[in-house]
Design a protein around this nucleic acid. Structure first.
Lengths: 199, 199
DNA sequence: CAGCTGACAGATATTGAATTCTGTCAGCTG
DNA sequence: CAGCTGACAGAATTCAATATCTGTCAGCTG
C-alpha cells in the first residue's frame, strides 16, 4: 500500500493533501489520512507544516496560483492591443472558473470551502495578484491612447469588482444557466465602453 | 402575558414572526414561538400559512418589498435627469443595505439566511422588480438622448450584476471597510461613462 | 359553523458519552 | 544527528438516545 518513499518534501505532502481532499472532501480530510497516503506517520507532516490550517492554506495557494499563472500569459501577451487583451483576460478568468466548477464539481466545492476558511491571507493576495495584472493591461491601454483612466489601479479594482459574479465561487451555480454568456458579454461591453477614450 | 386578541390576521402573524426571528434568530425560531407570542395555539397559525417555509417566505417578501418601495420613489422621481436618478438609485440601494447590515446585524444575518433558503421564488422576483426599476431609468435616459443602450433591460441587468458586491448580503462584511465608498464611486463612474451617449 | 384548540405521528434537533483527531515531544533509527 | 515514529493530552467530531418541533385533524367553543 505505502508508495515508494523518495524523501518527504513539502511538495509531495501538498500533492497527497490535494488527493486526500479530492477523495474525502474538506470536512473529512484529516492529517492522518495525508500521512497514510504518503506511508509516513502524521508527526512527519507536522515537520513541514506547523498546523493543519497552514497545510490547507498552502494547498489553496497552489490551486489559486495555477489560475494566476494562466492569466499572466494573457496579460503579458505581446502584439495585442489593450482592449483585446482585456477582453481575453476577463473571458479567460470566467472560462477557467467555469471549467473548474463544471469538470470536477466536488473538487471545486472543496476549494470553495477552503477559500472561505483561509479568506484573509491567501485569497486577498490572490486578488491582489489578479488586479495587478488588470492594472498592467489598463495602464498599457492608457499609454497607447486606447483607454481613459485617471488611476489605472482604481479602474482595475472596479473591473474586478464589477465582474465578481462571473468569477466568485459563491455564484458558481448560476454559471450553467442559459443566458450567462450573454450577461457576461453585455457587462464586458458596457465596461469597455466606459474605459475607451473618446474620439 | 398573551396580548389583546383583535382577530388573528396574516398581517399580525407576520409581525409576530418578525419579532420572534429578531429575538431567537433563524435557527431557533419555531412556529410554536410565534403562536405563543400571539397568545394562540400553533394550529391557528397553520390556518393562515400552509407550512413554516411559506410563513418564512412571506416574512422575507415583506422585508424585501420595503426596500423595493423605497427605491421606487427614486426611480420615479419627477424632474430629475436619468443620470442623476441612476446615481441616486444605486447609491440608495447600497446605503439601504449597508444601513440594515450596520444598524441591526442580528436581524440582517437572519434575513441573509432567509433569502438563501427561499432563493428561487421570492428573491428572484425581488431582483426582477429592482432591475425593472433600473430598466425604466435607462429607458428614460435613452429617450432623452443622455444614454446609449441597444436594449435598456439588458443594460439594466448588467448594471445590477456589476454592482452585486455593493448590495448582495454575501459581501456585507466588506461594507464597513475604509475604501468601500471610493470603490463604489469608481465603479458607478465607470458604468455611467459606458452608458453615456457620445457627443 | 367559522375559527380555534390540543393530542398525536413522524421528522428534526439537542445532548452528552464515546470515538477520532490535532499537535507535541521523548526517544528511536539509519 | 536529521529525520522520523508513535504514545499521549486536550480539542473536536460522531452517534444514539432523548427531547422538541412540524403539520394534521377530530372535536370543542362562542
Amino acid at each position: 500500500m505505502p508508495p515508494t518513499s523518495p524523501t518527504l518534501t513539502a511538495e509531495r505532502i501538498l500533492e497527497a493533501t490535494e488527493e486526500v481532499l479530492r477523495r474525502h472532501g474538506p470536512a473529512k480530510a484529516t492529517v492522518v489520512d495525508v500521512a497514510r497516503a504518503l506511508g509516513v506517520s502524521h508527526g512527519s507532516v507536522y515537520r513541514h507544516f506547523r498546523t493543519k490550517a497552514a497545510l490547507r492554506e498552502a494547498v489553496t495557494k497552489r490551486w489559486l496560483d495555477r489560475t494566476t499563472d494562466l492569466l499572466a500569459e494573457i496579460a503579458g501577451a505581446p502584439g495585442l492591443d489593450a482592449e483585446t487583451r482585456l477582453r481575453d483576460w476577463l473571458a479567460a478568468l470566467f472560462a477557467a472558473k467555469r471549467r473548474k466548477a463544471f469538470d470536477d464539481p466536488e473538487l471545486f466545492a472543496t476549494y470553495s470551502v477552503l477559500t472561505t476558511e483561509t479568506a484573509e491571507t491567501v485569497v486577498s493576495e490572490h486578488i491582489a495578484d489578479l488586479t495587478g495584472q488588470l492594472t498592467a493591461i489598463v495602464r498599457d491601454g492608457v499609454a497607447s491612447g486606447a483607454f481613459t483612466a485617471a488611476d489605472p489601479s482604481v479602474a482595475a479594482r472596479a473591473l474586478f469588482r464589477a465582474t465578481d459574479r462571473f468569477h466568485d465561487p459563491h455564484y458558481a451555480r448560476e454559471w450553467e444557466q442559459p443566458g450567462v454568456q450573454d450577461d457576461f458579454d453585455a457587462l464586458v461591453g458596457l465596461l469597455l465602453r466606459g474605459l475607451r477614450a473618446r474620439a
